[in-house]
Design a protein around this nucleic acid. Structure first.
Lengths: 342, 342
DNA sequence: CTGAAAGCGCTTACAG
DNA sequence: CTGAAAGCGCTTACAG
């Protein structure tokens, strides 16, 4: 069963392709009668416009690309959901790619999306990304680009973020408020902006409370992938290095859960011996034992907002208006749970 | 900066578009010298073929569609990852849609994908799907279709599944082996084939062990969405209805975790009072307390396999060969953990 | 109100 | 080895 074309409809009705096309799109200069006939036949033949041809003519694909470091991740999968749900409302489809935290892959994927002629791109950067020419390439082509979560400040495009520094400050302040005197930090990879900002928030909270900042209390994730295993490893190392740490602010819930598992294995009690605050509010943080205090990061909303902004820019470009990059900061909040109960 | 076309390259080199096109695709009837010139210029101009035009000519989009009930779900997000990683290897892009367990949405989304002219579709059905004409529509158009996990046996297409009945049998048998005499079952929604099969496996295990099958021990999920809340609700109801249940086989880990949370709140001890086996082996099942015994379901592999099969069929159709639907069954295994430790 | 014609950017059968 | 021409299926400015 071959797909039906405008030509076939035109032949069956003995009218021109032009008129059929116009009738289906409700052009005002087609008679009601003709419109009726065309629409009816189109329906019975189950006509669907050939997107390839439409795209070629209109130079739009009604498709956007999304590049994400990891999919199997509570925060990111929520973002995906937010983007897809919003895109659907506007009649857009979403092509999803996973960069696996690799700069090389990310670069290739952007090339792919550009040659696919998507109407815009949404991205959260890989931990390994330090060069941004592949992103500027998107901007040079006047394609809308929206970054979220892991962004590059220097790139001139719209961004949807949270105030990582402030959130980290609040998380650390909470540990201090409940009495912690030696607060460590598992900061994740070195490069990503949000990792830097969270670290700065942690440091500022210490200094504002007249607690010394001790670099040996900051644990970096070399592997590039913030994972459960990383949390275990860091926790093990911390127990070797220090015996006086009474609180830790950890970059991601998953890592925090890894750390808590290690502490539990070694008989270190949370929160009695060490209090812990995570980041992101993964679902599982509310069901493990002890439940994990964390910063709620609105993934679904972030996805929705990112698409909305992208859509605005797509429209702006269509109407030959400037697209005006915008940075949108979403609210976060501290969720207090058992891991910091004193 | 407008995208470069074949025409521009041709003009700059004073040769025809035909030759440029052939040179770039390494046709044997173009001189080495010309090929060299064309390729060099294409590179410096950063030429990328216009996919719309290529698609229109070749009638291929190198894109496949994926419809999934929920994205924020450990099993499904692993499947997505598997599909995307395999697709990338073959140069295919993946458009992802979420049906939200709604038949209506699923139908619309298939229409969307078909009018987008994707080369094939991979789907896991919504719990609400009982009619399959929208799926047969895909098959009528001779588009490859692969179903996985939640399938419809009656639809003539390839399927990637596990042996749900067998897995459920093993799960239930495990509960009986450790001494359970009154085993309940949270079966999830009524319609999906895997829900039916798991129920049948549960029932058969009881009967094979000379335990009576009691329908009042089987809890159905009316809301259509197998969730944490559903687990809590069912657990609460079960405690009201029965005081002699000593084991439960639960359709999905997330629901099992909901149930364990409710039991914990009410002072019912797992596994001392009630032993629990889940299904799917979500990551969090290995870190909660008690850790959850479950059936490991290979999501990533399922995704990979589904795409591989789809790809084979796409190739077959391209070469005018029959596509021969195939059902592939992947292995599962029981993961014993604390929730069934006696 | 209707339609012939050009064109989007490519591919490929065919002629030379 | 090179290129003119047709055509994929649509949209739209223009003529009548």
């Amino acid at each position: 069963m071959k797909p039906v074309t405008l030509k076939e409809i035109a032949e069956q009705l003995n009218i021109s392709v032009t008129t059929v096309s116009k009738a289906l799109k409700d052009y005002p200069d087609v008679s009601k009668k003709t419109k009726g006939l065309v629409k009816e036949l189109a329906k019975t033949l189950n006509y669907k416009p050939n997107t390839f041809a439409v795209n070629l003519r209109t130079k739009e694909s009604k498709t956007v690309g999304l590049i994400i470091p990891v999919i199997v991740h509570h925060f990111f999968s929520n973002v995906i959901k937010g983007i897809i749900s919003q895109a659907e409302k506007k009649g857009y489809l979403v092509i999803i790619l996973q960069s696996n935290e690799s700069y090389e892959l990310e670069k290739k994927q952007i090339d792919l999306l550009l040659s696919q002629r998507v109407d815009g791109i949404i991205i959260s950067l890989a931990n390994g990304t330090a060069d941004f020419s592949h992103l500027n390439q998107i901007i040079d082509q006047e394609k809308p680009l929206v970054m979220f979560d892991k962004i590059a400040k220097i790139v001139q495009c719209s961004k949807v973020i949270i105030d990582d520094r402030k959130a980290a400050y609040i998380a650390t302040q909470h540990l201090i408020d409940i009495g912690c005197k030696r607060v460590a930090h598992f900061r994740g990879a070195l490069l990503p902006q949000n990792s830097i900002d969270r670290f700065l928030g942690y440091k500022k909270a210490l200094l504002d409370n007249n607690l010394p900042y001790d670099p040996s209390l900051v644990y970096i994730c070399e592997c590039g992938d913030m994972s459960f295993e990383e949390g275990k490893k860091n926790a093990k190392q911390l127990l070797k290095d220090h015996d006086d740490v009474d609180g830790i602010f950890i970059n991601t819930d998953l890592v925090a859960i890894g750390a808590m598992t290690e502490f539990n294995n070694q008989g270190v009690k949370v929160p009695e011996d060490i209090s812990i605050v995570g980041f992101s509010n993964w679902f599982m943080s509310s069901v493990i034992s002890p439940t994990l205090t964390t910063i709620d990061q609105p993934g679904f909303k972030m996805g929705k907002t990112a698409f909305k902004q992208l859509y605005k820019e797509i429209q702006a470009i269509k109407n030959n208006k400037p697209k005006r990059p915008k940075t949108i900061t979403l609210e976060t909040k501290l969720i207090e749970r058992e891991s910091t109960e004193k």
